[in-house]
Amino acid sequence: MAKGRNLLNTELQVINIGLDLFYHSLLTQNVTAVQVDWKPRPKLDPKLELILSKIL
């Protein structure tokens, strides 16, 4: 089985995706962290979405 990155026995380094209050809590505890911007995909007209799904 593959092995993910070392998590428990090493320095914690976090990508926070979403609520930035969690990011600030990590910084308060001196955890290395970056905040990632996230916004939902814009909702397209269903007809346009169907056309795009055929093209892409």
Binding site: G4, R5, N6, L7, T10, L12, Q13, V14, I15, N16, I17, G18, L19, D20, F22, Y23, H24, L26, T32, A33, V34, Q35, V36, D37, W38, P40
Partner: peptide
């Protein structure tokens, strides 16, 4: 947050952080 926020692909490509955990709240 905007001072330090960026998009995920940039974070993964830049290797600015050797992330071992992602905290997701979307």
């Amino acid at each position: 947050s905007s001072e330090s926020s960026t998009d995920l692909d940039s974070v993964l490509v830049s290797k600015s952080i050797n992330a071992n955990l992602a905290l997701i709240s979307i």
